[in-house]
């Protein structure tokens, strides 16, 4: 009896999740009348706007990841090593982007960094790109920090640091050649999640008027019938790919070394 309900709950859920996925796949293949075809995909992939915006978002995602790693790995490391009392406060700050809606944050950017302000980032295309990158780094902050902090927990950073220092390593060497390789799996998990978030993000890019993939998808959705479904399949594939990569790299994660001493 219990099993009956358990299967029932699971199957109900699976049907709900399967239908939209079937729906979008089915719709994306129906552009040619009366036959299944990849016409919608050919149309989308051949659209120069698709290529431009896709490339733009990929570039932005990679820059965001590099910036996030350079900012967060040293911070999380330093807080664990020297300022452990600060950790709850830093952790609270990193969770704030989950509390404050992205639309409010970008609203603040527009008001704070407009052309008549002390730092007129929205005035130039490059400035707006940089601002959007900072915005994405903010959105990714909760996931990135958590991933890196969890990674640091599994290694004994105090001993590693002392060992490196006694061999004459400076801070840059310690971070780049001792700490980073040890938390690489955690960093990669955070990076793939960041990639998935940036590729699909719409609100910030649209309000900062950047030619990113999210606003392109929305625009196409407002004007076309079959291509949006093809885009949805592609976007789902990207998300799925990122999650699969996270699963893959976490197989190589080191076991927690923090046995109680």
């Amino acid at each position: 009896m219990k099993k009956f309900w358990a299967w029932g709950a699971l199957i109900f859920g699976l049907v709900y999740f399967a239908l939209p996925l079937i729906g979008m796949t089915n719709f994306s293949l129906k552009m040619r009348r009366g036959a299944y075809s990849f016409d919608a995909y050919v149309k989308v992939l051949g659209d120069p706007r698709f290529q431009e915006t896709f490339l733009y978002s990929v570039t932005l995602a990679l820059v965001t990841i590099v910036f996030g790693v350079v900012l967060i790995v040293p911070t999380a490391y330093w807080v664990r090593l020297r300022l452990p009392r600060l950790r709850p406060y830093i952790e609270f700050i990193t969770l704030l982007p989950l509390v404050i809606p992205a639309i409010v944050i970008v609203f603040g950017y527009i008001r704070l960094y407009n052309t008549s302000s002390w730092l007129p980032l929205t005035g130039t295309a490059m400035g707006a790109n940089v601002l959007l990158m900072f915005g994405y780094a903010t959105l990714a902050l909760p996931y990135m920090y958590r991933a890196v902090d969890t990674g640091l927990r599994t290694i004994d950073i105090a001993t590693l640091t002392e060992a490196a220092q006694s061999l004459g390593a400076g801070w840059v060497t310690i971070l780049s050649r001792v700490i980073l390789p040890n938390v690489l799996v955690a960093v990669l998990s955070g990076a793939f999640l960041t990639f998935a978030i940036v590729m699909g993000e719409f609100t910030m890019a649209a309000l900062l008027n950047r030619p990113a993939f999210g606003p392109y998808m929305q625009l196409l959705g407002a004007n076309r019938a079959y291509e949006p479904a093809a885009l949805a399949v592609i976007a789902f594939g990207i998300t799925w790919g990122c999650m699969a990569l996270i699963q893959l790299v976490s197989r190589f994660a080191p076991r927690p070394a923090s046995q109680p001493r």
Partner: peptide, 22 residues
């Protein structure tokens, strides 16, 4: 794993998927 994917599959493409379904 699927929950990880689906919870991140929000935004514009999700809307397209539902438009193509309902």
């Amino acid at each position: 794993t699927f929950s990880g994917v689906a919870s991140n599959f929000a935004g514009v493409p999700l809307a397209f998927a539902f438009l193509a379904t309902l």
